[in-house]
Nucleic acid binder design. Structure first.
Lengths: 211, 211, 211, 211
DNA sequence: AATGAATGAGGTTTCATTCAT
DNA sequence: AATGAATGAAACCTCATTCAT
């Protein structure tokens, strides 16, 4: 779609451009729908260059997955400080996820497809990431329960709720824009998760667990 | 994978078997990852039979989409009765979605992939379905607000929350089972949305909007 | 192209309709370009009916060839009477060919394609027909030479000239009509071989051999 | 990067070999009867190479048509000099067509099949070529009429006569050789248009139009 | 480091033919 | 006599990958 000028700059450019293009194409078309030709075209390199630098389609996909959902726990949990009250920690956790999704618009489609295919391509780090996130979330909730401000709930379900809400909202944007019959009110919602939407979701999640 | 007995029964069997097999394969592999050969194998028919009865891969996919997410509003809104109090209506709405997802396990992966690719294959009815669901949900929420039991919120966001939570929970089952490092507690969650999970999500959603 | 009503009349209708349709399709598309489906469609019968009554595509093509260029010598030589002067005999021969071509518009394309593929499907009768025609033509020319009104020439070459001229004129009609850049004068020539064209060709052939 | 001259003589070979093979196969079997596999086999390349360099079967056929009957007017009219008397010009025109047909033995079958299917694949240049040829022929004839040596006739009909005679003679060679019952005299005619045959046809055509 | 050319394996689709009724 | 359904074989075409430079 976006033809790329073959502006060769510094060394290593090629690899970066390949990864960017690959991320775009994989996120738009999925693994099976992606053509290596198309990635090469968008990256402005010869197809063989991809094989020279990176390897096959599978390897390339792995790289993309790693760069998109690798070490995501880091980003999500970075802001959660020990000295915050649990309510603030929850807010930080929610906002971090929102920022992660918004800063990386290719993430939602890729994760949804990966989930749909049973995570066939998830790198090992994903399990550890989920573990860390659920662990921290459990701590936050337990602390809240102890302080009498949260109800007791299942952390994993809550996590699915936050992730699911946000990703579905994000991923539904193109559909909202395209389909006829969708109510005008819905169409006018912002494609990205802007402050209004973020606030609304944050509010609902907190209301759901607040005593 | 499942070899199918070539049990030739009544007429029309072939078409039904083809659609069933196609739904399975498309849901497992996505459009690009699906091989027509595989569908034929699982349906126990010759590949050409698919073309004779239905047409190409694209048409077949369209049929699958139609049968899986066509007229889903019907099922979801069927139980919402006029004389219920808004809280009951919300519960009915949530439970209907859960049942729809559980009765049709192929739905979650297919919808997630479709969403990921911008709904390229959604039939026109999907727009109308979403419109009807959002419409009914809006009515329920407004009624609840009027009666002083619900807070005011954005119906579409709430819908994304319900759908997103449920589909992510459902679709994450294989990943939970497979990945190492996932906490034991999480692994032991049921794959399907059983009563416990359903009740938890229902509870959280209602808490989120209840005044 | 012409959809045919499935008007079942007398018995044997089907076979006749099949042969008519087959002649049309083979003449338009050639053997390789013809689809048995298309013949069935145009004949208004089920594809299997063709196999039931006639046999495979090859057999059907044979039948068409036989009916189109079988015993053509009969028609061409029928009018040549013993008591005519050689000039009249030549005219009769030319006019008979013209009438044969005009009465059977499917003949020209079929013959041209058969010739192009080396007559792979010619039935044995074709050889005998050519022999008879060349024989009679030789007689006519020799008689003319003896009477001092014709020059001596090679009968087969003359035959190719008559047949070639007429078939090329006839077969070029669609091309004349379709291509741009063709001079208006040429476009306005009649598609069929009308009296004017017939007379012109007859005149040229006779001038060519007349002393 | 690209060497100016094909250093090994190997580059571009593939395309040339493909076109040669394609011309042969299409001329022998027609479009519908041609298998891309067969072309690849004869060209000594992998089937995919054809698609890489040229595109699909249809495109390949177009290229063949272009190379076989593209700019044929050039060759036919090249020898016709202004200062020749009209009779010489006619002879040149006839001999040029003969040479064109003889130098390109694939031409006759391809043109005959194309004509039979209404010139579906003729490139635009064909119309212009016919226009130019008819134009020149008209000039020659008018000049002859003015000088009192030609009769008045329809140029297009005369052109069909020349082309038709020659192509039918040429294309009938395999049939003459194969069929039984064909008179020995006819069988012994040369397959190609040798000097004897060329002279005979030239003589007949000139006699036909000479006053 | 990078590429144009080439290819084997396998994809979707077509088609002449047969089968069961 | 006639047909809707079904199919094996083979057609066209694609695509991830490798090769030679």
């Amino acid at each position: 779609m976006e033809p790329v000028l073959p502006s060769r700059g510094r060394k290593g450019d090629a690899v970066a451009r390949i990864l960017t293009a690959a991320t775009a194409v994989f996120s738009e078309a999925g693994f099976g729908g992606t053509r290596v030709d198309e990635i090469a075209r968008r990256a402005g390199v010869n197809k063989a260059t991809i094989y020279y630098h990176i390897g096959g389609k599978e390897t390339l996909y792995g790289e993309v997955i790693r760069s998109v959902i690798g070490n995501v726990a880091e980003k999500i949990l970075a802001g959660v400080k020990e000295d915050q009250p649990p309510e603030e920690k929850m807010k930080t956790y929610i906002r971090s996820i929102i920022m992660t999704i918004e800063n990386n618009p290719r993430m939602a489609p890729i994760m949804m497809r990966e989930l749909a295919s049973g995570g066939a391509h998830f790198p090992p780090v994903v399990g550890r990431d989920i573990a860390r996130i659920i662990g921290t979330l459990t701590d936050i909730l337990e602390e809240g329960v102890k302080k009498g401000i949260f109800i007791s709930t299942v952390p994993f379900i809550l996590h699915m709720m936050v992730i699911g809400s946000l990703m579905f909202y994000r991923a539904s944007a193109p559909v909202r824009a395209k389909l006829e019959w969708i109510p005008e009110v819905v169409k006018q919602l912002s494609a990205g998760i802007n402050e209004e939407v973020a606030g609304e979701i944050e509010k609902l999640i907190l209301r759901a667990i607040s005593r």
